[in-house]
C-alpha cells in the first residue's frame, strides 16, 4: 500500500477521531482526578451537546459553528445542574453509588434526546463535502477544524490549570483534597467549576463527532469505552495524557481495519484498555492508581 494512501484513508481519519476522543477523555480524566469517580454519563452528555447544537441550527438557521458555543453553554449548565441534583446529594455515599447513578443519568439524558429530537439519524448540513488536496494529503475543512479546535480547547484548559488561581486550586484538589480544604479552597466551588468545564468539553466532543459523521441518540454512548480507554491509557488525572491517549485510541481504531475485519474496529479500544491495565495501570504519563 502506498504511503499516501495510508495517510489519507487511515492516519488522518484516525487523528480526527482521536481528537474527538481526546476532548471526551480530558473531561473524564478531570472528573476522575478531582471528583474521583468514573462518570458513565459522559458520552450521553456529549450526545446532548451535539443535539443542542442541532436545535440551534434548525431553529435559527445558523451555521453549526455558531451553534457550538451555545451547545457548550447548555452542556455546562446541564452538567452543573445534574451535579447539584444528583451527584452532590450522593457525595457522602460510597463512590460506586455515584458511578451507578451516573449510569442512570446517562439513560435519562438519552431519553431526553430521543423525546425531543426523535430516534432518527440527523445531520447538521445536507450534501457531500469532497476533501481538498494539500500536497497529496486529502482532508476536509471540517476535519482540519476538528483537530485545530481540540488543540486550542485543550491548550486553553491547560493554560487555565497552570496559570490561574482557580486552575491551580483545581489541580490542588486533585493532588491532595484534604490539604486543599486546609488551605481554604471551597470544594463546592471547585466541583461546580469542574462540571462547567466538563460540560464544555462534552459538547465539543459530541459536536465534532456529529459534524464529521451523523447525529444519533446512541452516538455518545458508543464513544464512552474509547474515551475511558484514552483517559486510562494517558494516565488518570493527566490532561496531556488524555490527549495522547485519545489520539492513540483513534488512530488504532482506524488502522485496525488493515488487519482485522471492520466490524471489530470498536474492540480495539477494549483491547488497549485491557493491555494498559495489565502492563502499566498508571498510564503512559504516571497518573493516579485506580
Amino acid at each position: 500500500m502506498p504511503f499516501m494512501e495510508f495517510v489519507n484513508f487511515y492516519l488522518m481519519p484516525g487523528i480526527v477521531l482521536g481528537s474527538i476522543y481526546a476532548l471526551g477523555a480530558v473531561g473524564i480524566t478531570l472528573v476522575f482526578g478531582i471528583l474521583r469517580f468514573a462518570h458513565l454519563a459522559h458520552g450521553d452528555l456529549a450526545t446532548l451537546g451535539a443535539f443542542a447544537a442541532l436545535g440551534v441550527v434548525t431553529i435559527f438557521g445558523v451555521s453549526p459553528w455558531v451553534a457550538l458555543p451555545v451547545a457548550m453553554v447548555v452542556c455546562a449548565f446541564m452538567a452543573i445542574g445534574i451535579d447539584k441534583l444528583f451527584y452532590d446529594y450522593l457525595s457522602e455515599r460510597p463512590k460506586i453509588i455515584v458511578v451507578m447513578s451516573s449510569l442512570g443519568i446517562a439513560l435519562m439524558l438519552r431519553a431526553v434526546v430521543q423525546v425531543v429530537w426523535g430516534v432518527d439519524t440527523e445531520t447538521y448540513t445536507r450534501g457531500i463535502v469532497r476533501p481538498d488536496d494539500y500536497w497529496g494529503i486529502r482532508i476536509r475543512d471540517r476535519e482540519i477544524y476538528t483537530i485545530i479546535a481540540m488543540f486550542v480547547i485543550v491548550g486553553v484548559l491547560w493554560a487555565f490549570l497552570q496559570k490561574t488561581k482557580w486552575g491551580k486550586a483545581m489541580r490542588a484538589m486533585s493532588d491532595n483534597p484534604d490539604l486543599a480544604l486546609l488551605s481554604g479552597v471551597d470544594n463546592r466551588k471547585i466541583t461546580m467549576l469542574t462540571w462547567g468545564i466538563v460540560g464544555i468539553l462534552c459538547a465539543a466532543s459530541g459536536f465534532f463527532l456529529g459534524i464529521n459523521t451523523e447525529l444519533k441518540p446512541l452516538m455518545g454512548w458508543t464513544m464512552l469505552l474509547p474515551m475511558f480507554a484514552a483517559a486510562i491509557l494517558g494516565g488518570v488525572g493527566r490532561v496531556e495524557g488524555a490527549v495522547i491517549g485519545g489520539l492513540i485510541v483513534g488512530i488504532a481504531e482506524e488502522t485496525s481495519v488493515l488487519f482485522i475485519p471492520g466490524e471489530y474496529k470498536a474492540a480495539m479500544a477494549f483491547a488497549i484498555l485491557l493491555l494498559i491495565l495489565l502492563v502499566r495501570p498508571t498510564g503512559l504519563l504516571k497518573g493516579k492508581v485506580l
Binding site: 491551580k168 489541580r171 490542588a172 490539604l179
Partner: peptide, 17 residues
Amino acid sequence: IFREMTIHENLEMGAFL
C-alpha cells in the same frame, strides 16, 4: 504538601484565601 505541584505553587496555594 501538593506533590504534583511546584514548591512555588504550593506556597501560592497557601495564600489561596
